[in-house]
């Protein structure tokens, strides 16, 4: 009969209209500025730099200015300048650090590739999404002081991921220390070969922290290179 389809459709709209007053599945709107919906842990917006301590963020940046993220960034929004000197990192090892680390968030497309390619877990995605500024160019260009956020903040926004990263870093440091100890012990046990300094001591750390990364030229000597 002509009109049945229309009446059926009207019944659906009526169901939704009434349902929107009592059924949360039919009334899904959130009144945004007053009510903020919870963010999933994986949510990403713009990158930030992880520093070990909140008190001295510039002194404890994990970043060693290897420039891999700068090279891999699809819209080329990262700009890094390496330091001339070296500073000790969290493990006490001397490292290069970035004197300039800028991200142009007006260009950044939040793709997370910088996070994935970073071999040092030093750049992570932030969850701040209210980032409007009045200035067109300068205000959206974040420098390293604005980008640095503490590891505690990282734990706060992404607890599971941060715990996993911390566990991995701790395990690596421990392995490096043990290897260094073992190498030192081996060195002490073999006094007749002092001429060839053993590269094994710094191998695990060095292979991970090679500034050029994969495809770079500088590769640490292989273990078999020892005479």
């Amino acid at each position: 009969m002509l009109g049945t389809g229309l009446i059926k459709g009207l019944a659906v709209t009526a169901k939704n209209l009434v349902g929107s007053y009592h059924d949360p599945a039919r009334y899904t709107t959130v009144e945004y500025p007053e009510v903020k919906p919870p963010l999933p842990e994986a949510y990403r917006n713009f990158p930030f730099l992880v520093s070990e301590s909140a008190d001295d963020p510039m002194g404890t940046l994990r970043c060693v200015a290897c420039q891999i993220c700068e090279k891999e960034c699809p819209p080329q929004c990262i700009y890094i300048e390496k330091s001339k000197d070296k500073k000790p990192d969290a493990a006490g090892k001397l490292q290069i650090y970035p004197t300039v680390f800028a991200i142009d968030t007006s260009v950044c497309m939040s793709c997370q590739i910088c996070v994935e390619v970073c071999p040092f877990d030093s750049i992570k995605m932030d969850q701040v999404y209210e980032v409007a500024t009045p200035g067109r160019y300068g205000d959206l260009l974040l420098n390293r002081e604005q980008l640095a956020k503490s590891n505690a903040y990282y734990h706060q926004i992404r607890p599971t991921e941060a715990a996993e990263v911390d566990g991995r870093l701790a395990a690596e440091r421990k392995a490096a220390e043990e290897k260094a100890k073992a190498a030192a012990a081996a060195k002490a046990a073999l006094p007749p070969k002092p001429a060839a300094p053993s590269p094994a001591a710094k191998l695990p750390d060095e292979s991970r922290r090679s500034p050029q990364g994969e495809g770079g030229a500088a590769k640490p000597p292989a273990e078999g290179a020892q005479p």
Binding site: T4, G5, L6, K8, G9, A11, V12, T13, K15
Partner: peptide, 14 residues
């Protein structure tokens, strides 16, 4: 099912 009840048999849409 609900979406189709709203639309598929609708005479105006046809």
């Amino acid at each position: 099912d609900e979406f189709e009840a709203l639309l598929t048999g609708n005479e105006i849409l046809m």
